[in-house]
Amino acid sequence: METQTTVELVEKMLAGDPRALARLISQVERGDVEVPEIMQRIYPALGRAYCVGITGPPGAGKSTLTDKLTELARREGKTVGIIAVDPTSPFSGGALLGDRVRMQQHFLDAGVFIRSMATRGSHGGLPQTARGVIKLLDAAGRDLIFVETVGVGQTELDIVETADTVVVVLVPEAGDAVQTMKAGLMEIADIFVVNKADREGAERLQRELRLLVDMHAQRNGWRIPVLATEAPKGVGVEALYAAIAAHRQALQESGQLAARRRAHRRKELLDLLQHRLLAALVAQLEKDRVLLALVEQVQEGVLDPYSAAQQILKDREALWHSPNS
């Protein structure tokens, strides 16, 4: 396995080999030197999958909903890829990824590929490499890709800049609709779900969300639906599945799907550049004695960071001479 070239791995992945897909995902996650070649090779196979982001606070029931939605997609004969994201501990760098516990029924279905990802270096809810992993699942022929991330508000911009449809899952315990307004979830959601709808306060939250939705200007003719679900029993899941399909159709008909994807591609390039330039700059800082002295002066409090940044950036050569860039 170790001796396989990137070309061989990609060929196998495109032919449907789950282990090759898993290996390529690991390479993308690690940021191996082969990544540009992998992305170049799969590029022609991209754009067929539809990506649904599922976000909400911890314990809202995202994994169970994803599990039930997957069940419905499989009934229609659609293949599914699931990216289940849990946070990396900022203290140890480790992570406990437990979303699979709710998805056991799909483990032996070759039509469902589940990958757990830790957020690693990212500050938001999505790892920086998630977009690359979505591409691999797309190239591997998955019809639907669910990306499940923990989020409690505008930190979830990552998912908006990645998914075609964003489902925000809330629970009655999450508080009133003012909390939702504060967290900026109105700007993020294409569909609201009040899960655990058998609990007290669910109806009130739904009512408030509907009111909020109606106060908000409609985005390109799409009125954000507010749905109620009880995920473990499957209550309301079919309506959610139908709402995702309806949103997809609305995006297609209004031309918004193409516009969203254009914006996503642009953002991806800019993020990639930012990431690589920063890495190159930091690597250079650590090698260059003159630049390092500036960093130390800032550290010691004898030089202000604005002046130091200006001086460092004046030496533009530093940006382009990193060996890895």
Binding site: R19, R23, S26, G94, L97, Q104, F107, L108, R115
Partner: peptide
């Protein structure tokens, strides 16, 4: 990075998860 899959798994389920998660 620890992936926990829960209780009462068949060996087949465990192997399939191990492959997908690499």
């Amino acid at each position: 990075e620890v992936i926990y899959t829960g209780l009462r798994q068949t060996p087949e389920q465990i192997a399939a998860a191990a492959i997908q998660e690499d």
